[in-house]
């Protein structure tokens, strides 16, 4: 078997194992929380008898392990159960919410990833000169501010003062794309500012590291311009660390949008999760947790695979 194939299969198997472990962890954590779904539905005033009845009805009196495997089996077949509060199937809800979140993350990624890499390249080209310092300063400042703070600052200027963008990211399925984009412009801007610094700094560091290599001197002695040396000779050798940090940030864009969605009242996964936590809707929290874990793991596997593929020694064995 080609060594790359072996590595790919290994990573995939590892990912599946990891996902199962994560699901067990999430399930276990919700188990040890005080109170359960029955308690949440009936409220503090419920009698022991009522609770016991409801638990028997919902199957909560059976051993945790049995319930875990039932739940896991359900998820594997696409059945995530029903929400406690409105009795609607969770899978339908998540499908709808996820598509909103992905829409937001997609545009944030589309802007932030190329921008971060370009800024990283420029920072290397003008290392320790004012463009480098400016880029580092601005991106570090934006990552140092809490995201709700950035969100409110942007809302203050662009929504309240200038009326350029709405302060609430209200979108609905029937809206034309341009209107949708206009609606999410501020949350996209916030997310971009939050993830930009990390990716840009990593790009800069990874390329600077490669710039120490002897083959960079060879390229310079070919009379190539500095920027050609950076993107043709340094960048291809810095792909692995850059992709890793890009994927981590993509995962953050999907999973970490909670705050931003709440600030902009955006109907995505984050909002859904926060609502469920408030209402103690444990099955929904569980489902969201597993989905988020899956996103993280999948993106990290992709990062691993790209790093492997970026290594010419593995792609072209002797």
């Amino acid at each position: 078997m080609h060594p790359i194939l072996t590595l790919v299969v290994q990573r995939l198997a590892l990912g599946i194992l990891l996902l199962i472990a994560a699901s067990a962890l999430i399930f276990g954590l919700t188990e040890i929380l005080p109170g359960d779904a029955a308690q949440a539905i009936l409220g503090q005033a419920a009698t022991e008898e009522n609770l016991a009845n409801l638990r028997a009805e919902m199957g909560l009196d059976r051993p945790a392990l049995t319930r875990y495997f039932e739940w896991l089996g359900g998820i594997l077949t696409g059945d995530m159960g029903n929400a406690l509060t409105n009795k609607l199937p969770i899978a339908d809800q998540i499908g709808k919410r996820m598509s909103y979140t992905l829409f937001l993350s997609f545009w944030a990624a589309l802007i932030s990833v190329p921008l971060a890499i370009l800024l990283g390249l420029i920072a290397v080209r003008y290392q320790n000169r004012w463009p480098d310092k400016l880029i580092s300063g601005v991106t570090l400042a934006s990552i140092s501010l809490p995201e709700f703070m950035i969100a409110y600052i942007l809302v203050f200027f662009f929504a309240v003062k200038l009326f350029w963008a709405p302060s609430f990211a209200n979108i609905s399925p029937g809206m034309p794309l341009l209107e949708q984009l206009h609606a999410i412009s501020l949350p996209v801007a916030v997310l971009t500012l939050v993830v930009l610094a990390h990716m840009m700094r990593m790009t800069r560091a990874a390329i600077l590291n490669v710039m120490q290599s002897a083959y960079i001197e060879t390229a310079e002695l070919k009379g190539l311009t500095t920027f050609t040396v950076i993107y043709r000779h340094a960048f291809p050798n810095a792909i692995a660390p850059i992709v890793t940090v890009v994927m981590l940030n993509l995962a953050y864009l999907v999973v970490g949008v909670v705050v931003v969605e709440v600030v902009f009242a955006y109907p995505g996964m984050g909002q859904y999760l926060v609502d469920a936590v408030v209402k103690r809707d444990v099955p929904v929290v569980l489902a969201c947790g597993v989905i988020f874990a899956a996103v993280y793991i999948v993106l990290n596997i992709i990062a691993d695979l790209v790093s492997i593929l970026a290594n010419p020694r593995l792609r072209h064995p002797k």
Binding site: S213, A214, Y215, E217, T218, A219, E220, L221, K222, G223, L224, H233, P236, N237, P312, R313
Partner: peptide, 18 residues
């Protein structure tokens, strides 16, 4: 550089872009 004058280094292994 690379036109009129060119360079051969001690370690080709390090001087070629992998």
């Amino acid at each position: 550089r690379g036109g009129e004058v060119t360079y051969v280094s001690q370690s080709a292994a390090a001087s070629f872009n992998p």
